[in-house]
Design a protein around this nucleic acid. Structure first.
Lengths: 97, 97
DNA sequence: AAGGTATATCGGAAAATCCCGATATCCCAA
DNA sequence: TTGGGATATCGGGATTTTCCGATATACCTT
């Protein structure tokens, strides 16, 4: 758990927004674009207004930080939050840092 | 409470180290360099190995993010943690973000 | 008032981040 | 096996961050 990497991943308005969307996918994405594995890249990109390459990069940054997980299904990659990582981070800030 | 500003402030190894020192000043600094208002800049600088200007800037960054507080006493500025900010951040990550 | 000490601010070179367009890869369907 | 759609990676210009040395400001002492 690289603390600096995690905080860098969180140091961006767009990435925080994505994490917020992924917290309650049913509030932000139509049913056909989500499943148990999360939400596909394209629909996140569409909602964000940023380019496909930027969103793909941002999702990779969040994934490397351990904050989200990816599942490939056919041509789609679905991303969802790793809630355990957030719980651990919350605990870390409340005690260690 | 600007979330991005807070996470940016935390996105640096040296600043995390400073926050860690300030969490238990009695473990990291001699009694003559600390008081109820915190720890003075010079002793943090000495311990960090970074330059005076860099440490002053880093403390300002942490202060602007609301993570630490400054108290001027004579020619010294003492800095201490704002534990409420950390508690709020922990809570935020555990529920909102 | 003058000199010394502690801290803050300024100016800048190097490195990192932001976000893009172009291109590559992967996978499915025909 | 070829074409098309979804995602990942590459290369790069603009901006921000990192950390420094030099300088300014604040305060204390004499």
């Amino acid at each position: 758990m690289d603390q600096v990497e995690i905080f860098k991943a969180l140091s961006n308005k767009s990435r925080l927004e994505i994490l917020n969307w992924l917290k309650n996918p049913e509030l932000h994405f139509q049913a056909e674009h989500r499943n148990d594995a999360g939400v596909c890249v394209g629909i996140i990109q569409e909602k964000s207004g940023l380019t496909q390459s930027t969103i793909s990069e941002y999702l990779t940054i969040l994934k490397r930080a351990g904050l989200i997980e990816a599942t490939r299904v056919g041509q789609w990659t679905f991303y969802k939050r790793n809630e355990e990582a957030f719980a651990a981070l919350s605990k870390l800030i409340g005690s260690e840092i």
